[in-house]
Design a protein around this nucleic acid. Structure first.
Lengths: 364, 364
DNA sequence: GGCGGTGATGTTTACGTAAACAGTCGTGCG
DNA sequence: CGCACGACTGTTTACGTAAACATCACCGCC
């Protein structure tokens, strides 16, 4: 079999025709990569000159540069990032520790993080936790410490980090999402309180006597914050505070809560802590013959793209996940570049209530 | 300010008390990391012995080992992955090129990839494309080539790769999702055809005369495949083939298609190419007073978790994204470990029709 | 015309790790 | 008793890159 032929049908190892030809040994592991020395040899210069060309250093005369570039092309030279990282003590990589990409919020935040990091020349290394226990978080941190990472973004309830005598290499920075630990870490989060307040006020302003609540899991800081604000807003307005129902963010748990709410005859307004649970609530109410919004009004949280197409389209609090991701990267980079001088603190991303058709005045 | 104090309130650089103490320079970048040499010095041995302890090499006497381990703990030593990578020529990292994490399928596949890769000691580096043009794909490949990556998984319609004279370092392997290019690449994909066939057959078996279709974007191989199979299945059964409607995977586009379908009096069954568009279709039909499933039956594709809570709960084709991710990692790793000997080919993950309440016999 | 300077290029070295090779002991056996 | 061997540890070297320093040629100026 000829190299060229394998090249065609395999196409698994890209390029490499040049190398393959010089190596000569078909499946062999001989000299896999082209180094600066190889290019230098071919171009008839020193490897330092190759380095200068590679990094766009000015003091290389045009003719030499051309020669080197030609040699690079011919050999298919690529800089070796491991050697670079070793040299500079920097990896240009940000680690992200999170619990699953399954939630809309997480995946969209990560998407934004990756995009903005890429724009700054940083790559993202993912470290998903299968179970969000404290031990696992610690393990993830430890592994991150061994990984080629300049900084870490943690998308997790911070309390999982609390007991940690976390030990990681110095010079590695942390930014946290979904947390109130702004005094110890750099935190970026959505303005949970303001969003929840807008939702509850909207329902009260429509004339509802009070507002019920389907909350997220107790372990979630965001969920707690929304529940607290819901309670506080009702108290401020002098309204009775019904017993909240607890979900786990899933539509399934929302459905269960919705069935319970449908059985409460004086429930006319519900603030649900995320859109997926709101979907379940809508279905439960529909199945029990409680019309939305005529009999019961529902407000969600997140504004996932699908929410506009629920039946009826869901009034919900818009969270800007992309902005959260952007700010995470921004903070992490200023930490990397400016070091200790960047102080911890919380960076709050605003929310906005999106009015659709799941809310109305209560039945008279 | 004392180092200890900063340690407490900053908590941004983990650990490092020991190093900070030795460095002495507050914000300085002096000797950030602890190397084997440092540990060796403290333990009174050679750095090679430290290396042996670090790698669990057998021929180190217990007393020495203890001493080294103690020194490691005291200094907070972590192996430097850049140096390791340089030494071994391997990064233990897999790159993932994809267009956005916003679609459920992508994010769940990536989640599974990251989880399984982690289990095998590999990290994941994400490279999201903001716009899936051929130029961007090429750019991503090029950058991946410079990145510290042993293999690449591409979650993209393959045709974007076609024109590519892609050039990447030899020894870097590719696995592709959502493609029919099994002759050139290693491919892992859901059994689109079987899923679509099950959906259409189910509707025909219920007694519907024919089945309409809302397809995905023309650029998607998966979408094309589902549409082709829908057409073929109708033809085989000798049924008329209505003009398909085209969406872009979003609920919004499904809604638009749904409005059009609601205006077709003889449309009693629809196969929608994904669940999000099906959500839009359901809303459109509901708004136009066409009852689902009494007047119109709807089948989706993907089985996102929310589909069970649509109104009515959606009958849909279940895709096992986790399995797709698992097999991607498996294939990529066997390529890395066994090299050229692993041949290209397509790995097909089965689908399964999940019956819920959006389908029924046609009105008589 | 020699001297200082400047611009282009080459040489040395260090980054942290680990394989390969080189001791150094003590022990067991002829 | 001496030698060989094995168990343990130390020394050298290479991986690919790029800063720092060294060299060399050439230019302009007094």
């Amino acid at each position: 079999m000829e190299p060229g032929e394998r090249e065609q049908q395999g196409a698994l190892t890209w390029s490499g025709a040049a190398h393959r030809a010089t190596s000569g040994i078909p499946g062999g592991r001989r000299k896999q990569r082209v180094s600066m020395a190889d290019v230098a040899r071919l171009a008839g210069v020193s490897s330092q000159t190759v380095s200068r060309v590679s990094n766009g250093h000015p003091s290389v005369v045009e003719a030499t540069r051309e020669q080197v570039l030609a040699a690079m092309r011919q050999l298919g030279y690529r800089p070796n990032s491991a050697a670079r990282a070793l040299r500079y003590g920097q990896f240009n990589t940000i680690g992200v520790i999170l619990f699953g990409l399954t939630s809309t919020g997480n995946s969209r935040t990560v998407d934004a993080i990756a995009t903005h990091a890429a724009a700054e020349g940083y790559a993202i290394t993912l470290m998903p936790l299968d179970v969000p226990t404290q031990d696992n978080v610690l393990g993830a941190f430890t592994r991150m410490g061994e990984l080629a990472v300049d900084a870490v973004i943690v998308i997790l309830e911070i309390h999982l980090l609390d007991a940690a005598t976390v030990t990681l290499p110095p010079g590695v920075h942390v930014v946290v999402v979904d947390s109130n630990a702004g005094d110890r870490y750099s935190v970026v989060d959505t303005d949970q309180a303001d969003g929840a307040r807008q939702a509850v006020r909207h329902l009260l302003d429509l004339g509802h006597r009070t507002v019920w609540h389907v909350s997220g899991p107790r372990t979630s800081f965001a969920g707690q914050r929304r529940a607290q604000t819901w309670r506080a807003t009702l108290r401020e307005a002098g309204r009775p505070v019904p017993e909240p129902l607890h979900g786990d963010w899933s539509a399934e748990s929302g459905y269960a809560a919705g069935l319970a709410l449908a059985a409460e005859p004086d429930c006319t307004a519900v603030f649900v802590s995320n859109d997926q649970m709101a979907l379940g609530v809508l279905r439960a109410l529909h199945e029990r013959g409680r019309a939305v919004p005529r009999e019961v009004s529902v407000v969600g949280f997140d504004d996932i793209p699908d929410a506009a197409h629920f039946i009826p389209p869901l009034t919900t609090v818009h969270q800007d996940f992309a902005e959260v991701g952007r700010r995470c990267v921004q903070r992490v980079l200023s930490r990397i570049r400016e070091g200790q001088s960047v102080r911890p603190g919380t960076d709050v991303v605003p929310t906005r209530l999106v009015l659709r058709h799941s809310t109305a005045a209560p039945p008279s």
